[in-house]
């Protein structure tokens, strides 16, 4: 599914799978360092080879995020970032052939109104939501709104998920299934997870949907490794760190471009 007849998440990942590679999903928060600069940064990821982008809505209490994303989100909020600015970012970065998902904690969506947000988000060109603190058991309103407005709903599975929960989760998921590769928060790690391949295999037993793996990837080699068993490689903190660690905006964008290129090359050469 996707709004506005644009290219859908599933079709992108079916194509990358047919090409013998994984899709690259790049994450950046909206509004960091400013709303306009975040638009430029997200476009840079798209130009440098991301197959999908995931735009974060900064939130005051991001329990699933490690230090890098927390810092960027806090700075964005301190800079006056509002939910309506997110919609402006979505409008500016969608329509470039790359589906745009939003990763958000649930309270800002409830506050906006689940149906109202879905309507405005779809109208802005958004493809779907990734909801790290919303499990299907609590998602009736979102399930209905996403149907109504043609949005994908990406739910998470984790190493601790039972087969029953995985089955129940994939049943209501669309676009792709987000496999949280490690028991922990976001942030780069030197080695990728040993639990991830098993989790992906368990997920595949329950669905034919593409499976994306996130949490911890920061290099081309790691991306290639994850691409060996997953349909999509999700990179967040490493992308954000390019901007956080840079001395200037242009330096940050250059680092982001270079990392995205490296990761895109990695997902194109899956390790067996």
């Amino acid at each position: 599914m996707s709004g506005n007849g644009a290219v859908s998440v599933t079709s992108v990942l079916e194509k990358t799978r047919a090409d013998g590679r994984a899709g690259l999903v790049g994450y950046l928060p909206a509004g960091y360092p400013t709303v306009d600069a975040s638009i430029t940064a997200i476009r840079t990821m798209i130009d440098a080879g991301c197959d999908l982008v995931e735009v974060g809505l900064p939130y005051s209490d991001p329990v699933m995020d490690g230090p890098a994303i927390q810092r960027a989100a806090a700075a964005a909020l301190a800079g006056g970032m509002r939910t309506r600015d997110l919609l402006r970012v979505i409008e500016a970065v969608s329509g470039h052939g790359v589906p745009v998902l939003v990763m958000t904690y649930w309270n800002p969506i409830e506050k906006y109104g689940v149906d109202a947000f879905s309507r405005d988000f779809a109208a802005a060109g958004g493809a779907g939501l990734i909801t790290p603190d919303l499990i299907p058991d609590e998602a009736d309103e979102w399930l209905a709104a996403s149907e109504r407005h043609g949005l994908d709903r990406v739910f998470l599975v984790a190493p601790s998920s039972t087969p029953e929960r995985i089955a129940r989760t994939v049943e209501v998921t669309s676009g792709f299934v987000y496999a949280q590769s490690i028991m922990g928060v976001t942030g780069v790690r030197d080695s990728t997870s040993t639990a991830a391949p098993g989790l992906v295999a368990r997920t595949r037993e329950a669905t034919t949907l593409p499976v994306g793996v996130g949490l911890g990837v920061r290099s081309g080699a790691q991306a290639a490794e994850v691409a060996g068993y997953a349909d999509a490689v999700i990179v967040g903190s490493a992308m954000v760190s390019c901007l956080l660690d840079a001395a200037s905006e242009s330096e940050g964008l250059a680092a982001l471009r270079s990392l995205t290129t490296e990761l895109a090359d990695g997902v194109s050469h899956p390790t067996d």
């Binding site: 499990i135 058991d137 984790a158 601790s160 949280q180």
Partner: peptide, 21 residues
């Protein structure tokens, strides 16, 4: 069964914590 009093309560947490809960 899922900890709801009317519309209140529930579990708005990452899937990773569900098994522990």
């Amino acid at each position: 069964r899922l900890g709801h009093w009317g519309r209140f309560g529930g579990r708005f947490v990452p899937e990773a914590l569900i098994a522990a809960l």
